[in-house]
Design a protein around this nucleic acid. Sequence first.
DNA 1: TTACAATTTAATAGCTCTATTAATAAACGC
DNA 2: GCGTTTATTAATAGAGCTATTAAATTGTAA
Lengths: 206, 206
Amino acid sequence: MTQEQEAGLEQKILETAEQLFLEKGFAMTSTTEIAKKAGCNQALVHYYFRTKENLFQSIFEQKIRLLISSFQDHEMQNLTFEEKLKRKIETHFEMIRANPRLPFLVMNEFTTNPSRLEAFRIKIIAVPQAVFHKLEEELNEEIRAGRIRDITVMDLVLNIVSLNAMLFLTGNIFKCVAQLSEEQYQMMIEHRKQEHVKVILASLRP
Amino acid sequence: MTQEQEAGLEQKILETAEQLFLEKGFAMTSTTEIAKKAGCNQALVHYYFRTKENLFQSIFEQKIRLLISSFQDHEMQNLTFEEKLKRKIETHFEMIRANPRLPFLVMNEFTTNPSRLEAFRIKIIAVPQAVFHKLEEELNEEIRAGRIRDITVMDLVLNIVSLNAMLFLTGNIFKCVAQLSEEQYQMMIEHRKQEHVKVILASLRP
DNA sequence: TTACAATTTAATAGCTCTATTAATAAACGC
DNA sequence: GCGTTTATTAATAGAGCTATTAAATTGTAA
């Protein structure tokens, strides 16, 4: 049916754990539940990953990389800065749309377990600088030319990430409170994508 | 020392629980821990509140009301729409700044426990409509006069809430990754407040 | 003082969770 | 086939958690 099916229990456990961690976070997911849903004995989870923390970290680290990479460049030299930025916003948006619970997981785990945050700091500190360096140069060039207002790359990225991530962080809340059908919800998501682009581009006008 | 001190253990338990729930969420906080930190026997927590869920809900409901009320009107008739909106953004910002873990708590509990969300839906569905109705009228008047672009009150509010809430949701992460001192962090917060006002106002220009 | 109510505690029942261990089944080289 | 890894399970130790109960302590009104 799906892409897994005949992949062995180790892989199955990994996939099940990923799904459950994304759904309910680390604390609310037990190895017992993972095993039951993966269709194996609970001890097998510990046989492959020794501890629940191990299992979580292998999933978590990979997901963090995915998150950061979504801001990577995508070869579009012949476009205006505005067009490039629009694409960047949309790419980031679509990455989160494809992993809608990821912002929740990151926030939840880094907030409830600050030691995890400290451990990851070294791993991820170098990445953003590399990713944002080119954007920064282009941004400064536009500012120098007077085509956009003065703004740091940090502020710009924070604005984009805030809008995009928050939409999916509050997605279920909004859907429930506003009593939206799945179809209405998807339309709203699509509409917000346009809105985010509008807001960011407008916020840069001199 | 602080404002409590001689308030009885029931109050003390309530305050301690609030602090711990905000810090670590519902699942990661035990009644045992609450009792120890409040300086009483664990059974006393259950004597006053019967269940952990009860204790949580009495805190949670009050906090949700606080969140919503921050968008309430504050009597400023003689100001331009732009000035009024600026004040609204800043009021909302300051409310979250005074309760910086509140966005995390709301998101965490509504996300990990959808049944809580359903239970709260009825209670909170009426409030936003009342709060946002006046804003909507003023907004539409500005649009009709051509002073701002066409936008729904929902989009406007989502933009504001996204920027303000997300700043504090990611506050600790950012502070740690960027290795900011407390002072630097506070400056950054202040700077972002101005940035949010800038972004929202700019995003409304026709 | 005494009776009675409110507060606080010690003890513990009953779960559930993580992790380990020892035993069993499957797979695989030789 | 035989021995040796590898995979899988049943059983359980050990800990922590929620909630209850019964007893002890404190407060209070007659």
